[in-house]
């Protein structure tokens, strides 16, 4: 069983904030980019927060999508060396990808948000489709 009460979602994805903030603690950093989210997570893991989800979730590449959501524990426990290695490797992997200069349409941004959101939902066992339906009903 997954202990949702201990989850803190670090994200720059507005869809995650909109749908999941009622159910989970969220550190929402809308001004930060993908890389900055990884750095924030790295620092939290170094400070002893548990890393619950893989920071390079999704095969959408780090220089392709602007959005990233990672789940860590709400409170620091004890630094775990394996988890620290995973997040450090992810930061290193990010740096391999050549930055791209392109304008993304709202539709594409929305799709990137959706993918990040659904990968996250799969990880925390939240019904992604139900969350979207609730959102549709609110609009």
């Amino acid at each position: 069983m997954k202990n949702g009460r201990d989850f803190m979602i670090v994200t720059n994805n507005p869809l995650v904030e909109k749908v999941l903030s009622k159910y989970y603690e969220i550190r929402y950093l809308p001004e930060e980019n993908y890389h900055a989210i990884l750095i924030t997570v790295r620092d939290l893991v170094y400070a002893g927060h548990k890393l619950y989800t893989h920071p390079l979730s999704g095969s959408v590449k780090p220089n392709e999508t602007p959005y990233k959501s990672v789940v860590v524990s709400k409170v620091p426990h004890k630094m775990n060396a394996d988890e620290a290695a995973i997040i450090s490797n992810c930061v290193e992997a990010y740096d391999k990808f050549t930055p791209r200069n392109r304008m993304l349409s709202d539709k594409v941004l929305g799709d990137f948000q959706l993918i990040d959101y659904t990968l996250l939902c799969g990880a925390v066992d939240y019904d992604a489709a139900a969350g979207l339906s609730k959102l549709d009903n609110q609009i």
């Binding site: 979730s57 095969s59 993918i115 990968l119 996250l120 939902c121 799969g122 990880a123």
Partner: peptide, 18 residues
């Protein structure tokens, strides 16, 4: 088997591999 979520799934006898 790829099993991360939407657009990243594989099915075995119809079951989502994740």
């Amino acid at each position: 088997l790829q099993s991360q979520g939407l657009l990243h799934d594989t099915y075995v006898y119809g079951v989502d591999a994740k």
